[in-house]
């Protein structure tokens, strides 16, 4: 069943990485991925450096690499695209085991695979060490508009309810002889989606009234801010420093 989005990738823990302020982690993950993307594709050693950096973070955060590895499979469709490039691309060609491969295509495919994989691994590390609520808090402290974070908070709070409702509808359909693989039965799926929308929308109206009854004025109250020390920022941004050194080194060598 395509429940790919349903289960958060959070791995609860108490390591220093877990305890780091979420805004520091979000910023660090983003900047590290920026460095990865900005790295020239021929700098093979540099990409290894990024992987060592990530492995070090996993060691500190006590995340088993296999745990991350299994969840990194989400990226697979893009690997397929990348594998096709060496065959499809023009330019200088290379013969490997009887196959004619384009060098430019090989590099392009490698570029997508390595950067995509490192990006997924970084995102997974962030998601594994930060609870959904903390991630949104981090976004809020990074000055993302409060409306966005409030909507996202409410969405996360109710998404399990809606998914549960969708799952019950699906089981009800299947127990009545529905087969989701058959295209001509799309009508049944769509009617369920229609009632799912109505239920979601009407639930939204009820949630709004319930919030009003509890004194909601259009903005969520800001909870006490825990100040982040300069040391915490420095420690949290350390991976960015290393990634920056790696990318500058790669361009220097190129």
């Amino acid at each position: 069943m395509g429940a790919g989005h349903a289960h958060p990738l959070h791995l609860p823990g108490t390591s220093p990485v877990h305890r780091l302020a979420p805004q520091v982690k979000v910023l660090t993950a983003f900047l590290v991925v920026c460095c990865v993307v900005a790295t020239p594709r021929e700098a093979f050693g540099t990409f290894g450096g990024y992987l060592v950096l990530l492995a070090a973070v996993w060691a500190v955060a006590a995340i088993p690499p296999g745990w991350i590895g299994r969840r990194a499979l989400i990226e697979l469709p893009f690997v397929v695209l990348a594998v096709l490039l060496p065959f499809a691309q023009g330019g200088e060609r290379l013969d490997v085991a009887g196959l004619s491969l384009s060098i430019d295509g090989l590099l392009a495919g490698w570029n997508i695979i390595v950067k995509g994989t490192l990006g997924v691994l970084t995102s997974l590390t962030l998601a594994a060490t930060t609870s959904p609520r903390d991630l949104l808090l981090g976004l809020q402290r990074l000055r993302v508009p409060a409306t966005i974070t409030t909507i996202a908070t409410l969405m996360l709070r109710y998404v399990e309810v809606i998914i549960g409702e969708a799952r019950r509808m699906r089981i009800a359909r299947i127990s009545r002889g529905h087969d989701p693989r058959l295209l001509w039965q799309a009508g049944a799926v769509a009617r369920s989606v229609g009632s799912l929308f109505l239920r979601s929308y009407e639930r939204g109206e009820r949630v709004h009234l319930a919030m009003l009854a509890r004194g909601f004025t259009g903005a969520m109250p800001v909870l006490a801010e825990a100040p982040v020390t300069r040391r915490e920022w420095a420690l949290g941004l350390l991976p960015v420093g290393i990634a920056l050194a790696l990318v500058v080194g790669a361009w220097w060598a190129a």
Binding site: T147, R203, G218
Partner: peptide, 28 residues
């Protein structure tokens, strides 16, 4: 927000949850 006023957060939250759940539907 001009459309929904202070209803924005709950309505958008639930519609977003709906879109999220919707994306779980795969079709061949």
């Amino acid at each position: 927000r001009a459309q929904l006023d202070e209803r924005t957060a709950p309505m958008a939250g639930l519609v977003a949850a709906f879109v999220f759940a919707l994306q779980m539907i795969n079709f061949p």
